[in-house]
Design a binder for these strands. Structure first.
Length: 189
DNA sequence: TGCACGATGAAC
DNA sequence: TTCATCGTGCAC
């Protein structure tokens, strides 16, 4: 199964595009983390786009720091950070190097070797075994990557404001959160 | 060196 | 609605 998933791994050019487009198309994709030789597999059902330094809700809006460095790097890499001192959030870096945009994976549907709740970004990381040691990790690697499903899946996409960014003024009201309509694993339908 | 504050989750 | 909990970023 793991070789099949690796064959369907998304190429660099998938990530090197408009961040909203990437966020929307990430829905339905398989997020895979191999832990102790066991592939944990989940279907992405909710994601948020963070457009770049001009986006007041994005971490890159406060400039390049040791923490946010991966956001400023090439697309197709992980950006993982700690929020509220206890939860990790997994992001996918998008667009050309230097653009500093990313997509936050907010919820996934468990498919294989996952235990527990996955409705929310902190819970996604807990279930998949992701923490900030994975920040900067290449998503074209063999142990942490995103793959296409074996067959096309049809679903409707809902668009909403992002969660937890009220401090960002008008940017908080932008419709940059996408999820699979009707999916029971979405964190906030 | 100190301090205010989260791209959250769980309990009440 | 409240609170846990600590790395980060920026003010002294």
């Amino acid at each position: 199964m793991i070789e099949e998933l690796r064959r369907r791994r998304l190429p660099r050019r998938f990530y090197d595009r408009d961040t909203r487009q990437v966020a929307r198309e990430l829905l339905g994709m398989r997020l895979v983390h191999v832990v102790d030789g066991v592939p944990r597999v989940a279907r992405i059902v909710e994601a948020e786009a963070y457009l770049g330094p001009h986006d007041r809700a994005a971490h890159s809006a406060r400039g390049l720091t040791a923490r946010t460095r991966p956001m400023f790097g090439p697309p197709g890499h992980a950006y993982v950070y700690l929020v509220y001192g206890l939860h990790h959030c997994f992001n996918v870096v998008t667009e050309r190097e230097g653009h500093a945009a990313a997509v936050l994976v907010r919820a996934v549907e468990p498919l294989a070797n996952l235990a527990g709740n996955t409705r929310g970004p902190g819970l996604v990381c807990r279930a998949l075994g992701i923490d900030r040691r994975q920040s900067g990790h290449d998503l074209l690697s063999d142990d942490l990557f995103i793959a296409r499903p074996a067959r096309r899946e049809r679903f409707a996409v809902a668009t909403r404001p992002r969660v937890g960014v009220d401090y960002a003024g008008a940017w908080a009201r932008r419709l940059l959160r996408f999820y699979v309509r009707g999916n029971r694993w979405v964190s906030r339908p």
